[in-house]
Amino acid sequence: MSGCGVRYNRQLHPDQQKWIKDNAAAFVKQQGITVGQANNELTAQADRQVQNGSAGAWNQSASAFLGQAHDMPPAGSSGHWPRVSFCRCPHVARSSISPINNISRGIIFMLSRIALSVIFVTASLTGCTILPQPTHYVSASHPEYDPAVSARIRVLSTNASGGAAFRPAQGCYKGLLETDDQIVKVNDGFWAAWKYSSKSETVGMPPSPRDYMRVESLKFKDLIREYIVPAEKPLTVLMSASGSAGNVYSSCRPPAVMFTPTAGQDYDVFMDGARRSCWIAVRHIDGHGMDEPVLMKVAPKCSNSAPVVQGD
Rank of each mutant, 00 (worst) to 15 (best):
L176H: 08
Y212W: 13
M213S: 04
G163P: 04
S250V: 10
A192V: 03
P73N: 07
Y8T: 05
C302H: 03
D180S: 03
V138F: 09
N9K: 14
P134Y: 01
N247I: 07
Q60S: 09
N9L: 13
D47T: 10
R275I: 02
P14T: 13
G67C: 08
G162C: 04
E201R: 13
G289K: 13
F120S: 03
R7W: 09
S161W: 03
S305V: 05
K301N: 09
D272I: 00
E226A: 11
N187G: 12
I183V: 15
D272W: 10
E201M: 11
G53E: 05
Q37I: 01
M72K: 04
N102R: 12
V215W: 09
I224Y: 09
A62Y: 09
Q310I: 10
Q133R: 05
L111A: 02
W58F: 14
V28M: 13
S305K: 04
L176E: 07
L177G: 15
V84S: 12
A256L: 04
S124V: 04
A93Q: 14
P90H: 08
R48Y: 02
W191H: 14
S208A: 11
C278N: 03
M239F: 05
N23Q: 15
I20M: 11
F259K: 14
H284F: 07
Q16C: 11
Y196I: 04
P14A: 13
N159E: 08
Q30R: 15
T34R: 08
R214G: 03
K174A: 06
I100S: 11
E144V: 01
F259G: 09
R88W: 02
S95T: 12
E41T: 04
L131T: 12
S200T: 13
A55E: 11
V203A: 09
V50K: 04
S305C: 14
A57V: 10
I107W: 08
R105N: 13
Y137M: 00
T129D: 07
S150T: 08
G127L: 00
D272N: 15
G36S: 13
M205A: 09
V6H: 15
S112Q: 07
D211K: 10
A140V: 10
G32A: 09
S112F: 03
V35Y: 08
G79E: 08
A26L: 11
W58D: 10
R48M: 04
P99H: 12
